[in-house]
Amino acid sequence: MATTGERIFGLTREEIKRQIILPWKEAFKICARNILIRLGRSLVTASTTFLSVAFLMSVATMVTIARSVAKGQAGFQLTPEDIARYNWLVAMAMLICFVGIVNSMLMSVTERYREIGTMKCLGALDEFIVRLFLIEAGLMGLLGSLAGSIVGMLVALLRASFGVGWHVWVSTQWAVYGEHGIGLLGWLIISTLTGTVLSMLAGVPPARYAAKLPAAAALRTEI
């Protein structure tokens, strides 16, 4: 029915599309400010990611240490059962991480329904809202999981220092990938990425749900 040549409010559809934008730079600015201003709230949200990723990273570090330095040493001998158990632990850590992040993202979206409704009244497209929450989840996921993986690795290295000796700091394979498989830096990248991606994945559905609400319904919400 509506063709592209048709004019609405004296403008073509293309002109209208060009007049509603949210550049990524602006979106980043809004999100960064949002995180900083709600720092306490952001830290609680990020702490879920932090703890889960720290757990994931410490397990990964223990495996790497065992593989590269502690070959044959008591306490770090890896049997196939050990490896299976570690894998199970890592999987559990990821699952807990996912549930925790979904929960905190859900909370941080629901408590801002009214804000979302307001933004829609001011001319935000649904995808602007999703973009804002995606960036926010991504930034918090990145910070939380970067801090988490570094702390997780340090804790596991310290623990090994007391058990095996301080030489673990040098003799463990740091390289991203080497003769003993994935090294510490490799695991750092993997767990940081995992945390960030999980965080973003968890953030999108609630944000999309909130963005799709009619503006009036979002404004009506009382929390």
Binding site: F9, I16, Q19, R114
Partner: peptide, 28 residues
């Protein structure tokens, strides 16, 4: 008859809204 862009355009440029509860963004 409006699609998402046109509706957003309408809310952005054609209509200004004022609410009982002000609805300012609290962090801004």
């Amino acid at each position: 008859q409006l699609d998402a862009y046109e509706l957003a355009w309408l809310r952005c440029r054609k209509i200004g809204y004022i609410f009982q509860t002000f609805n300012l963004i609290p962090v801004m």
